[in-house]
Design a binder for these strands. Structure first.
Lengths: 262, 262
DNA sequence: AGAATAGTGTCTTTTAGACAATATAGG
DNA sequence: CCTATATTGTCTAAAAGACACTATTCT
């Protein structure tokens, strides 16, 4: 698809969107990655806008909101096996009031003429998801109307549109609960990883120190990880062994609905 | 408010609802009570309908979905201090297809003439909540268009409208996760309760046997309950002592975001 | 040789879990 | 006095948690 085609699709959606989309409903996804001991969030900045926002979009009347979130996230990340989790609905009537996003500004920037009462500027109830993914797999892609799309440090975010800062904060809360019911390294790390990597991932998410000996002991006793006969050469000093998740055991733990305390 | 006024309001809402409500968005609440070792759900049956449904309604454009759920639940239960928890959005495009709820049937039953493409029969994305409440406090109240509103045994539900059976099933799943992050007896039992009551509440929700000695030990060691100097006379044989939750400790546990394993 | 990082074991404390006898009130 | 229910304690096993040294590799 070239830029002209994308542009055409975009114009169609803006003008005739209500034929396809639910009015007043949007989905937004907090895509969380992990890199160098920091959690990252994938954000985008629409062309000529100052502020950044979460990847989000509208819901077709023929799909579920989960389908919509999946479709939109896939479009941004090119990943088609993301785990997306609904975590909260944001519906403050003032949530989309943003001086940086008005019909006038929108018209000026895109060149598409729209009315003041255009559906895109009505209230939106946003159904928010979070997704966990391995940082390195994602090649953020732009599109006709995106100027930038990239990872941001979760502790150092740019200025955000609407209530997106709040959505990210709530996503992190939901993640902390989630981690007690799902072994999550599986989603955030490459297939093969080292123990120190997994350890510092958990320290980062839980935001507290974990004794690496006890941490290892716990994972091994749960039979959740398998040591491989390979080492990774990461440059300096001793090379760590690689591990993999034991997928079978991993699924079993989730199905048992047991609490996982690390 | 008498019946005629209610009737008038109802007609206004049906005909002019889109002035006030979001289109395609509804909220439904699974109100869970506990009585005689059984979990109960509060269901309603609209006048002249065969099937039962969850108390639900539409969202004003000037309120949040949480406000809407609270408003609607309060209307049914007369309780104004319910804890409502968003747990999932239901959005299957076919979810509101129900042979028992069509424009024709609706017109015949209510006497209100509506078109086939009336907004009430469009797709609805339902934001679902669960609420926990003490069974005995709730006096289900009807209204102009409700024939019945009462508690049903969670294991013996009547035929339900739309996807409401699925919503209830998912609410119970969410409750099982919730119980690990909130001491919930506080919401489901009277202010003063006996140990055997609390014990069998937990057995009911978790659907498994819990040794009452270990159960008691755990709660006492958490400093979560306080023994009172009162006994309840429950008829036969020995009267059990009454206990109260230690609210301060209760709130502290929630704020610590620690997992609670019973 | 020295510095940096990976990997591993023991002991103690705490918690979970199995298990049943005693006390008391009502009939 | 008998019965039904409430209440309570001990022992064992498992898990959590504190704690630090050794091994390896690279420079």
């Amino acid at each position: 698809m070239d830029e002209l085609e994308l542009r055409k699709i975009m114009e169609d959606q803006v003008m005739d969107g209500l034929k396809y989309f639910y009015r007043n409903i949007s989905v937004d996804s907090v895509i969380i990655g992990y890199h160098e001991k920091e959690l990252k969030v994938l954000l985008q900045r629409p062309q000529n806008f100052q502020k950044w926002g979460l990847p989000g979009g509208y819901v077709f009347k023929t799909e579920t909101v989960d389908d919509a979130a999946f479709r939109i996230v896939q479009y941004r990340t090119q990943l088609d096996n993301l785990f997306l989790h609904q975590f909260k609905v944001f519906s403050n009537p003032d949530r989309v009031k943003d001086a940086g996003f008005t019909p006038e500004i929108y018209s000026k920037i895109t060149g598409i003429k729209i009315d003041d009462d255009h559906w895109m500027f009505d209230n939106f109830v946003s159904i928010a998801f979070f997704a966990l993914t391995e940082f390195s797999l994602v090649q953020p892609t732009g599109s006709a109307y995106l100027e930038e799309c990239c990872w941001w440090d979760i502790n150092n975010l740019p200025e955000l549109l609407f209530d997106h800062a709040d959505i990210i904060k709530e996503a992190l809360k939901a993640l902390k609960i989630f981690i007690h019911h799902h072994p999550i390294g599986y989603e955030l790390l490459p297939e093969k990883f080292t123990l120190p990597e997994l350890h510092s991932l958990y320290e980062t998410i839980l935001n507290k120190k974990l004794d690496i000996r006890n941490f290892t002991k716990k994972l091994v006793s749960m039979d959740l990880i398998t040591k491989l006969d390979e080492q990774r050469n990461i440059g300096a000093h001793r090379s760590p062994y690689l591990y993999m998740f034991n997928k079978e055991r991993y699924d079993q733990l989730i199905n048992e609905e047991e609490v996982i305390v690390i």
